Amino acid sequence: MAKTGYKLSKLPVNLTNKADVERLKIKAQSGEAIKLHFGCGPRILKGWVNIDLSYAHYGPYMQYYTDKHYPEAIRGDRSDLYVIDILSDGLPLPDNSVDLIFHEDFFEHLTQKEQIVFLAETRRVMKNGSVHRINTPNLAASMRDNSNFEKGKAGVHIGEWESWDHYSVISPAILTDMANIVGYSSILFNSKDKSSVADQLPLEYRPNENDRAGDDSNVFADVIK
């Protein structure tokens, strides 16, 4: 189950924290590398710009993350979190200013419209050649493993949406089309923890060993500007 602010974000209010917007603007002017982590929930990463709609301390969630995926050395705090509603306000960052983007168990909680908006805004702020790492459930694998379309309506695995509050679940083909539409230069599909920039990322938590059986149960992609 997702533990991010965006899972509960279908609210008619703007949750952006103006102080966090100003902090991020100042950080962007500092000259240091900018790495964005979206939908972080309580897994706030030290040294990253973690963006979500609310703050949650990691303590109660360590039963899920464990030290392997969230060791003390990489645990951030409230100062590493920026409460910004990017779908409403965009990112307070200049064009071509971001070095790396990472998120998992997040993209599927956006609607199709929001996914396109998100991909466009993230592309705007990325440096040329930088990587946008996407880890999200694979619609094709989920339907293959859980549906029996010979039964028609009764055989469709609707739990992919209804059990997890997913809004738009994608496949590699769908993500490829979206990335091309928005204008990314290329996309590389690989597997868990096998990103072309794996040495710059934390270990990927999703899916965990209890979530999904197939090796291709998630889409793991490096989308490149």
Rank of each mutant, 00 (worst) to 15 (best):
K68I: 00
D85I: 13
G59S: 15
A56S: 14
P92Q: 12
H103L: 05
R43P: 09
S79W: 05
F118G: 01
G47W: 01
L87C: 03
F149G: 07
D193F: 00
N218V: 01
L24Q: 01
F38I: 14
R144I: 04
I116E: 08
S88A: 14
E108L: 06
D80K: 04
L100G: 02
S168C: 14
S30P: 03
K10V: 02
N50W: 01
I116K: 10
A221W: 05
K46L: 10
F149D: 06
F106W: 11
S217T: 02
D95L: 02
P202M: 13
L201C: 09
N210T: 08
T111Y: 00
L188R: 03
L45I: 08
K113C: 02
D222T: 00
T111V: 00
N180V: 04
L45R: 06
H109P: 06
I181T: 15
Y64K: 13
L203I: 07
N218T: 02
D89P: 05
K35R: 10
N135W: 00
E209P: 03
L53Y: 02
S142G: 09
E204Q: 09
N17L: 09
Q29W: 01
G152H: 04
Y70S: 14
S186N: 10
I44L: 03
S97F: 09
S54D: 12
T176Y: 05
N128H: 15
M178N: 03
A221Q: 05
I224E: 12
D67I: 03
K194I: 00
L81H: 09
T16E: 03
H69N: 08
Y6D: 05
M126H: 05
